[in-house]
């Protein structure tokens, strides 16, 4: 009983937060009472429970939470890599499957997933080949997106000849090459060291400003989430649910040292509080 009450309370709070800024027309992603359960031998695993969220065009939304909170599952549901078991989910007003088939998004995975038998330029051209772009168009787009991620000059290299950071940049170029308006990123910098990560974060912000794409970004780093996002979705595990949605008050132009400002620290503190609230629930019941 207590558990249900709490969940309802939190999701109401979520709706209020999301509802405050959401004119429906511009919604890229709408989730209503979304639930996703994985069948397992000893009782089902509830990965997502009653998630309500609206993401508008041009937003940079981070999903943060401990492992098992369903943030990756939610991203995969948007990408039609997992099927929700209840509620509704629309992308640009379409079902996830229709959105995937219309190539509505680019997906960046935790690992670069570059094919080792293809050079960097061939890897970036892979979605273009599948989508049937002409050879000239492919070459032009590969050149442009590799410039965008600062990888010009590495066209003929193989993935395993590049550093981890460069591989992940190439995988971002691959997701950008076919110009989808929505970019889904699942902890893309999780395996990289702090310095490379800072660098790629500021590059990603610049890229977002230039391309005006909608970005959904999964992370478990508070500074990364606060630094990048216009909206931070805090999630909590068992069952996976949204516990807070924080709209960032930081300006769009963000130098790296914005992370020292009181405003930044205040948002970070709120995110931390949200994460702690999710954990205290665990401690009560385990």
């Amino acid at each position: 009983m207590k558990q249900e009450l709490r969940v309802r309370h939190l999701s109401e709070k979520t709706q209020n937060n999301a509802g405050g800024t959401a004119p429906d027309a511009a919604a890229v992603i709408r989730a209503e009472h979304l639930g996703l359960t994985f069948p397992a031998g000893d009782g089902d695993i509830v990965a997502l429970n009653d998630v309500n969220l609206t993401i508008e065009k041009g937003e940079f939304v981070s999903f943060i939470g401990p492992s098992g909170c369903g943030k990756t599952t939610f991203l995969r549901a948007i990408a039609d890599l997992e099927r929700p078991t209840s509620g509704t989910l629309t992308i640009n007003g379409m079902s996830p499957e229709a959105a995937r088939k219309s190539r509505a998004y680019g997906y960046v995975f935790q690992a670069s997933a570059l094919y080792p038998w293809r050079t960097i330029e061939k890897n970036v051209a892979l979605p273009l080949e599948i989508m049937g772009h002409s050879a000239a168009d492919q070459a032009e787009r590969v050149k442009r997106t590799l410039e965008l991620v600062n990888l010009s000059g590495f066209e003929k290299k193989y993935p395993w000849q590049l550093s981890g950071g460069m591989q992940q940049r190439a995988s971002i170029a691959r997701a950008l090459s076919f110009d989808a308006d929505l970019l889904l990123m699942d902890e893309p910098f999780g395996a990289l060291d702090e310095i490379v990560r800072d660098h790629l974060n500021s590059e990603l912000l610049k890229l977002w400003a230039r391309t005006e794409k909608t970005i959904c970004f999964v992370t478990h780093s508070i500074p990364e989430a606060v630094y990048l996002s216009t909206k931070i979705v805090v999630m909590s595990p068992r069952p996976g649910r949204v516990t807070d949605v924080i709209v960032s008050t930081l300006p769009k132009e963000r130098p790296l040292d914005i992370r020292e400002t009181p405003e930044f620290l205040e948002i970070a503190a709120r995110v931390r509080d949200g994460l702690r609230a999710g954990h205290s629930y665990d401690e009560e019941h385990v």
């Binding site: 990408a79 995937r100 998004y105 935790q110 997933a113 892979l126 599948i130």
Partner: peptide, 10 residues
């Protein structure tokens, strides 16, 4: 992950 990638490209 390599197969999921192909799936995201439909």
């Amino acid at each position: 992950i390599e197969r999921d990638l192909m799936r995201t490209y439909a």
